[in-house]
Amino acid sequence: MTNVAFKQRSHLEPALTDPAIRILNIEGLLGRWRNTNARTNGISEIHIARENAGFTVRIVGVGPDGPVDWPVAEGVVLANLEEEAGQKAVAIAANFDLGFMTAETHLRVNKGVLVIVLVVTFRDDSGRSDYINREFYYKAAEVE
């Protein structure tokens, strides 16, 4: 790759212009994922779906009175230049805006487990700390 701007050597990686890298093993991310901790007080389920030409991410939180459906977010696919657990696969980033808070998420599969990194920013005056958290999910059947 020549005559392109860069800020680090990997920006010059020829594989970045390979169309295949944009969707590599994307099928492994799609579907319904359930928290490995059945007693979680956080996110109980994550649904990643292909929709038209893009992807969507739907999150279900554990609420005081039952499941809380977060607004559906667009999933942005990110290529991975390196192998993880012997496999190279894309990840998905999705941002959620719930008004009183925003959530920045990054989702990837490692050894068959979906890992979410969640960054929560509170926009209300509740005094809660913004935080970063990580949780793990297993692939579940679409309908139980």
Partner: peptide, 19 residues
Amino acid sequence: MQAAQLFDLVEVNSTDPIE
């Protein structure tokens, strides 16, 4: 207090910044 998950439904006792 609004919360999208129980994890965020907490009582806050400090206004200190994050150390």
